[in-house]
Design a binder for these strands. Structure first.
Lengths: 205, 205, 205, 205
DNA sequence: CATGAATGAGAGTTCATTCAT
DNA sequence: GATGAATGAACTCTCATTCAT
């Protein structure tokens, strides 16, 4: 495939992402994506042969990017707080609608495609693992209380997923997101009393 | 509407529920429900005119029942622990697949029907409120540490939703669910150290 | 399925037959049949779900009818000549276009559907077997020379198929068909010299 | 057209032939041929503008070659038996799958293209004529019984076509082909009793 | 000459919805 | 009330054919 084809593929993925964000997964048709891309019906099939293929391509990439961001941050020797915070902040932006999310589409997709669930698990495990690493790092630095970081990795990862799915529908205000994150992370903090919501913001700056 | 018609409607809802559990919302067609009910195609339209109408009827009822269960328990003067535990246990059963759940269908539905999100919010608020009441009750009895029960009501409600959506796809073992609930509730416990996972079970008995 | 549905199915088969006669098999679309039947696109799918299904239904029936006709004639104790002649005459009518034939469609179908060839074989064997019975009967009556009737059953059956496929395209005149049948059957005749083409006709009367 | 273009055209015809043998005519698309030739989509159109054009080119050539083979043999003063036998043997090889045949494609083509049937007729007549010449030659040499060689030329030509169309689907064993040819040619033989099947083979050697 | 991306017509198929019975 | 046949819109997917490069 030439460079131009690669670009076109990229363009289609980008447009398709917008469609998935807007309509979830199950209701998206090839026609929808065709319209969004402003190409011909047959043209899309030159690059992808189903919504499923498009979706999986997008999903795998996003999962990879998300965990890579964490690894990258660790490499740069930022404080554990800062890293955890950035990670969660990215979610926050999505939750607040500043940056749209495919969370729904993801859920619809894996509901419909039972045989692909291993991909989903892989993504979740990757996320949990990345968070575990941050926590280990933070405990070592005496930033966090010592806890079972395997369990807490999963806990935070799962909480973030729940938040991602609940918030868009609920349309909670930003403060409420901070509130929830505060409750989640409190047990990790060495001196929780000293922190005030939205403490995440304070820490960041 | 006669009594017989009422029964038929009830029957249809029951069967439709099974379909939603199995296929989510977006992929369910009137034809699916017709098949599940073993009723004529036109016949279904005498009672409901769309999957949306059927779904909303079911959803409103379930939301009501769930909060009512909590209220009922409070009325019976059970311990806060017992009530919270029963509530969470019901989720656990669903999560472990012993009792099927419409969680996915719910998410799909509200994704597709933006204008109905207020209903979803009402349901979530009802759940959070019910949990808040349990917490207030437990704090009063000195079963729980004093916390902001409004925040914690939402926190637990949201966590349960996240769990409900994550677990079915992940196929985690029961211990992991206990582990997660433990991490969630730990800050509420007066003597967390004394509790071992699966502490929920221990408390129950 | 009610009686009316049965009639409709019959009607569709009848119309579809005309389409297959006219266009063969491979080029026939569900849309063609829909047009021929003057029903809606979706309507056809209530009765048949593919051209393949329609074709096989027609084919099986025709094969059955053709061999049944032979059995029936034997039962009525007609002379072997008369029976063989009638059988061949039916082909002749088809060949001359007085009665249209699906021969082409049959060939196209079994080319395309290798896995159904056993059906074709069953039909051919049935035909060969029926002719063998006529020959045995005729030899017993001393109408025919004694020959290996198994071989000759296949020989005549195969010849008729070849004729059916060649004639429509060739547009040979009726005399030429008689000529060919004469050459085919000559070795069976006890006094071939005494017969003149179109001897089949003479025998019939 | 330059020499190189001529070669390319030749190459395309060769590959297209393989496709027609495998898939008949009606189901063959320009795309199939493009794939088989490993050529660009637009490239094919520089040489041929439809499957029909390609097919007709192939068909005309094959018809010519087949009759030429007969003429050539006569020229070499082989015995009529030997020539007839070689001609039929070539068919046999095709029938047994040792040498693939376009027979099906031919039938499909002329079904679909009524206006081209004159070409088919021309080919059949050519074949019948070639066989007639062999028979005349054989009668003159007193190899065959005297018969109406016009009729018999058509008879044998038609029989071979029938065989070609029936056998591939039926998957008959080689002996059965010999059996059938024996029944066909028997009336021509001066002393048929002396011949045993597969007599064709015996004669050849 | 040659390429292969792009187009759009058209086939298959499914269902929501209607309506005569 | 209840049925299920019938309709037609919408969607998926494939290819013949064109055209810029």
């Amino acid at each position: 495939m030439g460079k131009k084809a690669e670009q076109k593929k990229e363009y289609i993925l980008e447009k398709a992402r917008e469609v998935f964000i807007k309509k979830g997964y199950a209701n998206v048709t090839m026609k929808d994506i065709v319209s969004a891309c402003d190409i011909s019906r047959g043209g899309l099939y030159l690059y992808f042969s189903s919504t499923k293929e498009i979706f999986l391509t997008l999903f795998r990439r996003e999962a990879r990017e998300r965990t890579e961001a964490v690894e990258m941050a660790m490499w740069e020797e930022m404080t554990a707080w800062r890293i955890l915070n950035d990670t969660i902040s990215q979610y926050k932006e999505e939750l607040l609608g500043f940056k749209p999310t495919m969370a729904y589409a993801v859920y619809e997709f894996f509901l419909e495609n039972e045989d692909e669930r291993v991909v989903r698990q892989w993504q979740f495990d990757g996320m949990a693992e990345a968070i575990r690493e941050i926590l280990d790092y933070g405990i070592e630095n005496e930033e966090f209380n010592p806890v079972d970081t395997n369990q807490w990795g999963r806990h935070i990862a799962m909480f973030l997923e729940g938040l991602a799915l609940t918030m868009p529908v609920m349309q909670f205000p930003p403060e409420r997101i901070d509130e929830q994150i505060y409750l989640l992370l409190q047990p990790l903090m060495r001196k929780p009393k000293a922190l005030k919501a939205p403490y995440i913001m304070e820490q960041t700056v």
